[in-house]
């Protein structure tokens, strides 16, 4: 090792701590890069190709069945993104956002910096939400490309509006679910099982119960935001027709109410997670 005199320049007064917003930004940036390098992102990317494949199949095998781009988009968001892809992606990136660092012991380095734990939580969560949103949006964007490739006639103002709306719904879903799963990752040492039970047990069960009980699921509120097809074409093959028929919420609530519920869930779970992290201990 070299001698101390060579590093005399390091002797100085301690700097002022980073402002909270900068700390969140640095942690989010660092975490985003870390999450983007995870191997599980490859499998998540493959799963996100499912809607693209579905659109491709419709274009190849059912070009003249009256299944318009509008209907495809509504069906995809209602029956593929909302009940399956959003929870899976949010679970994969959200549940590990905080918990994995605590388990690995790498959180100790940010822990022992003059940074609020709430900033650490928020930075990690924002990164996870960013990764989830980008993954899902990429899938949706690829669907768009497949739908319009060589078929520019489908592009209309109404269609673009619907697309933008779908992006927003998926983004909102990714934010809410990721925040919820990040909280689970902070509470449980092994959050995968409770997360699966929630996403594919509780959510499916509650969303399927009519009347007001279904309002207790995130899935219901996300599906409630999806525009409903006015007419389901009669000549669409059985399974697709069934799926599109299901795309009509049984007991719709006002859209603002669903948006509010999703925002409140995201905010509440974030605040709870930040509070929990305040008292978390590093045992490794």
């Amino acid at each position: 090792m070299n001698t101390m005199s060579e590093t005399e320049i390091i002797q100085a007064a301690p700097p002022a701590p980073l402002p909270n917003r900068s700390a969140v930004g640095w942690i989010a940036w660092f975490s985003l890069r870390e999450m983007a390098r995870r191997r599980r992102l490859v499998s998540l990317g493959l799963i996100n190709l499912l809607p693209v494949l579905a659109v491709l199949m419709v274009r190849i095998w059912l070009p003249d069945k009256g299944l318009t781009a509008h209907l495809q988009l509504m069906g995809l968001s209602h029956d593929m993104f909302i009940p399956f892809l959003i929870p899976v992606v949010a679970m994969a990136v959200g549940a590990s956002a905080i918990g994995e660092q605590i388990e690995e012991g790498t959180i100790v380095y940010t822990w022992t910096r003059p940074v609020r734990r709430s900033a650490i939580y928020l930075g990690r969560l924002l990164a996870a939400q960013g990764v989830a949103t980008v993954l899902l949006s990429l899938s949706l964007a690829m669907c768009f490309l497949v739908m319009v490739a060589g078929n520019l006639g489908v592009i209309s103002w109404e269609f673009l509006k619907l697309y933008l709306q779908t992006f927003l719904i998926i983004g909102l879903g990714a934010f809410a679910y990721t925040a919820l799963f990040a909280l689970m990752g902070t509470v449980f040492k092994k959050p995968v099982l409770p997360a699966i039970l929630f996403a594919f047990g509780y959510e499916k069960l509650v969303a399927g119960i009519p009347a007001r009980v279904q309002e207790l699921s995130l899935q219901f509120h996300l599906q409630n935001l999806v525009s409903r097809p006015e007419v389901v074409p009669g000549d669409i093959p059985g399974v697709l027709a069934t799926l599109l028929n299901q795309a009509r919420p049984r007991d719709p609530v006002p859209s603002w109410q669903s948006v509010l519920v999703l925002v409140v869930v995201a905010a509440l779970t974030t605040v709870l997670g930040m509070q929990l992290l305040q008292h978390k201990e590093i045992e490794k």
Partner: peptide, 22 residues
Amino acid sequence: DRVGWYRNVGFCPESDALPEWM
């Protein structure tokens, strides 16, 4: 006062865990 506390503290953990990708 965690923020003020760690301004003047350095910590080297026993754990070997580091962000491997950096």
